[in-house]
């Protein structure tokens, strides 16, 4: 016992004791389960009976039409959110940061409010906003323009639109904060000297702000890509469960959830999970390379 106490209080051992909780979590909840999942992806798992099926799960996955729908939905969602949630919040942050802006703190606060809602609450609100009754909010907007009411969440295009709009509603304010933090780091002298050279607002934005907030743009891009790839609960809540008509809201993670939890095919679900992990790892690697985190770990 005294030996152990002595070891723990040794200055050489201390750093390891400090990082131990992380190392344990990493091994127990990441490394080991990932290996189990790899093994499970080659198995068929029924209660009390596990059979090795080789590559069968993966073969099935390749030919699975519903999986392809899920992948295409996830990537379509990712595409739209990246297209909107990168430039729009940047432009808004630039305006909020401008000297002509009145009460920037107030507007920043208002735009941030939506992220305080949980997915459950936001999903409930937007499911009702995009309701199919003639009196549902979005249909009254259509009526205002003289258009007939539609079933928003039953058609492919409008269903995806609802999903993307909900995401933008929740995340625009957060991305604005990221950009504002970066914009505030730009010394005002840079804009001043550009003004002396006769630059207008757009030129200042294009040639000073954008290049200097590039690291933040890459950061926001990365989290948007991951967020798009991993999106599930938004769709789950918008359609009140994992079943959207003709799977128009089914995502890769939704498919994983359906196979693993709803249909209890853990082996097949593991294969889905690994494909997803491979997608994510590729993105992770590219991102670490781009931002140079892997390169500058010298000290």
């Amino acid at each position: 016992m005294r030996r152990i106490t002595h070891f723990i209080y040794n200055q050489k051992a201390a750093p390891y004791i400090f990082v131990l909780p992380f190392v344990l979590t990493f091994l127990v909840f990441f490394v080991y389960p990932v290996f189990t999942t790899i093994r499970m992806s080659f198995q068929e798992i029924l209660p009390g009976m596990i059979t090795n099926v080789g590559l069968k799960n993966y073969q099935r996955l390749l030919g699975d039409r519903i999986f392809r729908t899920a992948v295409s939905n996830s990537f379509e969602y990712m595409f739209w959110t990246v297209l909107i949630l990168i430039p729009m919040p940047l432009a808004l942050a630039y305006m909020l940061n401008s000297r002509s802006m009145a009460a920037p703190g107030l507007f920043k606060g208002i735009l941030f409010l939506p992220i305080l809602t949980s997915v459950v609450v936001a999903g409930t609100i937007f499911r009702l906003i995009f309701g199919e009754l003639p009196g549902s909010f979005m249909n009254t907007v259509r009526a205002f323009f003289g258009l007939a009411p539609i079933k928003w969440l039953r058609q492919e295009g409008t269903g995806m639109a609802a999903l993307v709009i909900m995401c933008c509603w929740r995340w625009t304010g957060v991305n604005i904060l990221y950009y504002l933090a970066a914009l505030k780091n730009i010394p005002p002298e840079m804009y001043e000297s550009a003004e002396i050279d006769g630059a207008n607002a757009w030129q200042k934005f294009r040639h000073i702000s954008v290049p200097l907030v590039k690291p933040t743009i890459i950061y926001v891009l990365t989290i948007s890509i991951y967020g798009g790839l991993a999106m599930f609960t938004e769709s789950y809540m918008l359609w009140a469960g994992n079943n959207s008509p003709r799977n128009i809201g089914l995502t890769i993670v939704g498919y994983l959830y359906r196979q693993g939890w709803e249909q209890n095919r853990m082996g097949f679900a593991s294969a889905v999970g690994l494909v997803l992990l491979v997608f994510a790892s590729i993105i992770n690697f590219i991102q670490l390379r781009l931002t140079g985190v892997l390169g500058k770990e010298g000290d």
């Binding site: 990441f30 990932v34 967020g227 790839l229 991993a230 993670v253 593991s270 997803l276 992990l277 994510a280």
Partner: peptide
């Protein structure tokens, strides 16, 4: 890595 990707393991 988002949690959703690791939720199964």
């Amino acid at each position: 890595i988002p949690f959703e990707i690791l939720m199964l393991p």
